[in-house]
Simulated assay, not measured.
Amino acid sequence: MKLSLSLQQDIQAPELVLKRAYLKKVVETTLRHIDTQSDCEIGIACVDHAESHKLNLEYRKKDKSTNVLSFPSDLPDEMAQVLPSFPIGDLVICIPVVLQEAAEQAKTPLAHFTHMLVHGTLHLMGYDHETSDEDAEEMEALEVEILAKLGLDNPYMERD
């Protein structure tokens, strides 16, 4: 599997320096863990509160900014055989929300950003945590396994 990644960084944060090679490693680790074989493309946009709020309101009817929004590709799966690289979709990650949540949860900004990147990538691949408790448990378990492969702690464990 080969991954093509496009990155749009509309907001910079000194406490969260993102390198394309690291983002690619996180997404590739996620896709390999769920046994994705096809070459694929993903877009990642790092945005501010205003952009996240606008998109969350427009697409999810929620009047607030959010940590990550996932926009899966609407191409049929059969196209994966035809295209040299299959677009799996786009992620929009709100940097201020990620930084705030990281502080509230006593996590490093990079660890929490990585969790949101894994979480969003799983959404792009069809995983959902809002439809049932079983789906939520499956998705959380995958996140924990993937983050462990990346050397990160279980984000769902209670901290002292």
Rank of each mutant, 00 (worst) to 15 (best):
E137K: 10
I146T: 02
E130R: 13
S52F: 01
H53C: 06
S38D: 15
E143A: 01
D135F: 15
F86V: 07
G126H: 06
P87C: 05
C94G: 04
H33E: 07
M139L: 12
S52V: 06
K149L: 14
A141G: 14
Q105D: 12
S4V: 08
V68R: 03
M1A: 07
D39S: 11
S132E: 11
D39N: 11
M116G: 01
V118W: 05
T131W: 10
P72Y: 07
D10L: 14
G126Y: 10
R20E: 11
L5A: 05
E138Y: 07
E78T: 14
R159Y: 10
F113E: 01
A136M: 13
Q37D: 13
Y156Q: 06
L31E: 02
D135Y: 13
V27F: 06
Q105C: 12
R20N: 09
T121E: 04
F86P: 01
L91C: 04
A45M: 09
T36E: 11
E158G: 07
K64Y: 13
T114K: 01
V92F: 05
V26I: 14
E143S: 04
D90R: 06
L117K: 02
K54M: 11
P84K: 10
H129A: 12
N67Y: 04
E51S: 08
L57I: 08
E138F: 09
K54I: 09
K54A: 11
Y156H: 06
T30W: 03
D90H: 11
T131N: 10
K25L: 11
E134P: 08
L3M: 12
R20D: 09
V144C: 08
C40I: 03
V68G: 03
M125T: 07
E134I: 14
K2M: 08
I95W: 02
K19L: 15
D74M: 14
P96S: 03
A80S: 15
L55P: 00
D77R: 05
D128V: 13
P87R: 00
L16C: 08
H112R: 10
K61P: 02
E15L: 09
F71Y: 15
D10W: 08
L147V: 08
D128A: 08
A103P: 06
D77N: 10
I34A: 05
A80H: 07
S4A: 12
N154I: 11
D48Q: 07
D160S: 12
E51L: 14
R20K: 15
F86K: 00
I42R: 02
M116Q: 09
Q100M: 15
E28N: 04
F113N: 00
K149Y: 06
I34Q: 03
E145N: 13
T121W: 03
E58K: 13
L3C: 00
Q81M: 12
F113L: 11
V27P: 00
L55F: 05
E15A: 15
P109N: 03
P72D: 01
